[in-house]
Simulated assay, not measured.
Amino acid sequence: MPDGPRTRATLATDLAALGLRASDVVLVHSSLSKLGWVCGGAVAVVQALLDVLGPLGTLVVPTQTMDNSDPRHWSNPPVPESWWPVIREAMPGFDPRVTPSTGIGAIGEMVRRWPGAVRSNHPHASFAAVGARAPELMAEHRLDSHLGERSPLAALERADARVLLLGVGFESCTAFHLAEYRVPSPRTEFGCAVLTETGDRKWITYEDVATNSDDFAALGADFLRSGAVIRGRIGEADAHLFEFANAVEHAVRWLPDNRPQAN
């Protein structure tokens, strides 16, 4: 049986005990349900994170919009091919102010809507940040660099950020994706709806690295064996805290030996 409800204060205590520090820049991947019963839900979790980070810290989350993509790639669930032209014609253009994130959980979506949050302007792979360095970290996100050198991930690496996996496994670790841009990786065509400078929407296509997280659990298990990861509990959730740059460096070494390479 759980030993009681989790609160903003108890979560902050757990986060500090794990090693999260005031003034940290931290990229958080999370599952609210894994924390146990939280009084205040996602609001309390974000408050606890910001309490520990303090006024000089910065909280970053992915706010991806996976449904703003070419329907020919959809598999969960797929849609009839006859629908594809309609979707491409009618999908609303990405608007960082209002377009909700999809598939990243309640905590990430709460950060996106948090007062003062800054969101990067990528129609498919955006991030959002709250805190002292949010504008700097979200400033550049090129269309053809979902998770690469001209994205918030590279900015996080330069900022000596840390990563907190909160109730999720390494399959959710976007830091590993940055490594895919630094080793031979396949490329593919993407499509999405965007807003033009005049406020109209249009469908565009472009090419970028075809990222793939299918082997990230195995990569994460190997990274754990390196001793560079702090492990603990936040509420009822397993938590992992580590340096962003260490994760990328490890992935750059691991991927060429453990993943078939692009021709």
Rank of each mutant, 00 (worst) to 15 (best):
R162M: 05
W84H: 15
G36I: 04
T174H: 00
V183N: 04
D214T: 12
Q64D: 03
E140D: 14
D67P: 06
R97M: 05
D3T: 08
L143F: 10
F223A: 05
A210N: 06
P260W: 00
A247S: 11
P256H: 11
F242A: 09
A217G: 03
S126A: 15
G220E: 05
P123E: 10
A132P: 00
S82V: 14
A132W: 04
V118M: 01
E207W: 10
W84L: 02
V209W: 07
K34M: 12
G235K: 01
V194R: 04
R231H: 08
L178E: 01
L143M: 14
V38Y: 06
W83T: 12
A134I: 06
L20F: 03
L15K: 07
P62K: 13
A247V: 09
A161H: 11
R133M: 14
L32S: 08
P123K: 07
R142P: 02
R231S: 13
E197R: 05
P115N: 11
D238K: 08
W74R: 13
V25Y: 00
Y206N: 00
R201L: 00
W84R: 07
H146M: 09
H146Q: 14
G131M: 10
A161Y: 09
E109P: 01
F127E: 02
R253M: 10
S69P: 05
E149V: 09
F190P: 01
A106M: 11
D70M: 11
D144S: 11
N212I: 06
T10K: 03
L164N: 06
W114N: 07
H141R: 06
A262V: 12
I204P: 00
D95L: 04
G105P: 07
H73D: 15
S120M: 00
L49E: 04
R150L: 12
